[in-house]
Simulated assay, not measured.
Amino acid sequence: MATLTFSPVPYAASVTLPAPYPHNTTFPLALSPSTPSSPLEDKLASIRDLVSTGQLPKILARHGAIYFKDLGLSDAHEFSEFAHAFGWLPHEDIGNPVRRTILAKNVATANEGPNTQPVYPHNEFGLSPHYPAYVLFYCVSAPETGGETPINNSIVLYEHLKERHPEFIEELEKKGVKYTLFYPNGPRDQTASAGTTVLQAYGQHVLDTDSTEVAREKIEKEIRRLPTASWEWENVSEANPLGDLRTWQRLPAIRDHPGTGQRAFFNNAVSRFLNARVAGTLKPPHVTAEGRYQPPAFYGDGSLIPEEYFETAVEFIHKTRSLVTWKEGDVILIDNHAVQHAREPWTGHRKLLASLWDEPTAR
């Protein structure tokens, strides 16, 4: 087998991280194989070497994200092989609010929402107690215009908010944050980035022959796997005997990075704020013109978080983020504990596939 290494290369989308990171820290760090035309197996062997020698965790601790440039992966199956080379445990989705379609082993579409709708900054599954340690995105087709994947550093964001609004961070550390999620039992919402249904989120064990009572028992058993969740069945009728499902999660909004010990603004609160702002539902009763309840994230005690804190966060994210541009066949690896990601609207063909992974040992 040929000797192949990954080396840092220039990448126009990279930015420099501010404190607390060392001077001239590149975000993301771009790595390219020494011989891009080498066979896939050589590239996989080089990834295994990065892991076995301990280089990979050091790179991620320093940079937070790695853009693997000039990989030339041809399809979802090659991406799956690449993702498995890191040796992590596949992450299991529980209660995913985003629709995804499995395309290869531990590989799915990233988000099937329309290309006109952005996805706002969030940590992957930051609104759940069950979240992945790492996220890999793979570009099957690049967009004609737009379609960047904005990423921002959660540790940098925490430090900035602590300096600008120490009372906000103090409240979050004391109270946590509360999310409301809604899962209809019916056709999914094709106009939103989210829009998964009850059965798609929690009904993997439900059979067509199950009674309503049995189906609910199976769904609620899945929900109980998330110990911080509470739920309620809504809109039960003769036409909808199962009903729609509303769940609530009360979670920490600030978490310590398990490897570095640094504090991170780890949550989906900014995303929920921006979605509510676009929908015009920041103020009570948090209901859209169509009658849909779409609140922002609350403090964990149910009280409203002042908008100014989120405005500061959004402004800082835009100043410090990297707008990751895509070339077909390339991959970005994100340390989910340290990095938030988003999605810009686009035109033309664009497809990203996602692979979610946990640490080799259970958290």
Score class of each variant (00 low, 15 high):
332 I>S: 04
319 K>G: 08
25 T>P: 00
305 I>V: 12
107 V>Q: 04
177 V>N: 02
239 A>M: 13
315 E>N: 12
270 V>H: 01
222 E>F: 09
79 F>Q: 07
267 N>H: 11
94 I>F: 04
103 L>R: 08
23 H>T: 15
217 E>D: 14
128 S>G: 03
167 E>V: 07
298 F>L: 11
231 W>Y: 08
181 L>D: 11
290 E>K: 02
229 A>G: 03
43 K>H: 08
335 D>V: 00
258 P>K: 08
192 A>D: 15
117 Q>A: 15
279 A>N: 10
197 T>F: 08
120 Y>D: 11
96 N>D: 14
350 R>V: 03
353 L>W: 01
4 L>T: 00
74 S>P: 06
220 E>G: 06
257 H>P: 03
131 Y>S: 03
153 N>Y: 02
263 R>K: 15
345 P>I: 10
194 A>T: 11
339 V>N: 07
134 Y>H: 02
226 L>H: 04
291 G>D: 12
86 F>H: 09
359 E>Y: 00
344 E>T: 13
167 E>P: 05
180 T>W: 11
160 H>F: 15
264 A>G: 13
298 F>H: 03
174 K>I: 10
180 T>F: 14
287 V>Q: 09
219 I>N: 02
121 P>K: 03
130 H>S: 14
70 D>V: 02
346 W>T: 01
119 V>M: 13
205 H>D: 15
78 E>W: 06
216 R>V: 13
44 L>R: 06
153 N>S: 02
2 A>W: 05
166 P>Y: 10
336 N>C: 06
258 P>H: 00
31 L>C: 09
236 V>P: 05
223 I>W: 01
326 W>M: 06
56 L>Y: 04
116 T>S: 11
315 E>T: 15
285 P>E: 04
27 F>A: 05
106 N>Q: 13
141 S>R: 12
311 E>V: 15
138 Y>W: 00
31 L>A: 09
141 S>G: 11
52 S>L: 11
166 P>Q: 04
243 G>H: 05
87 G>L: 01
273 F>K: 10
234 E>F: 11
95 G>V: 06
359 E>W: 07
53 T>Q: 12
285 P>Y: 04
334 I>Y: 07
327 K>A: 15
341 H>C: 02
228 T>Y: 08
170 E>A: 14
309 Y>V: 05
126 G>T: 06
64 G>R: 06
86 F>M: 01
123 N>I: 09
133 A>Y: 01
233 W>D: 10
88 W>H: 06
290 E>R: 04
308 E>R: 14
30 A>V: 00
40 L>T: 03
59 I>A: 05
258 P>M: 01
229 A>K: 06
240 N>P: 13
97 P>C: 09
189 D>Q: 00
344 E>D: 15
349 H>Y: 04
82 F>R: 03
55 Q>N: 07
216 R>T: 12
259 G>P: 08
164 R>H: 03
187 P>A: 11
181 L>E: 13
109 T>G: 04
297 A>P: 00
285 P>L: 09
93 D>M: 14
149 T>Y: 08
194 A>W: 13
175 K>Y: 13
64 G>W: 03
77 H>M: 13
154 S>E: 09
334 I>S: 05
181 L>A: 12
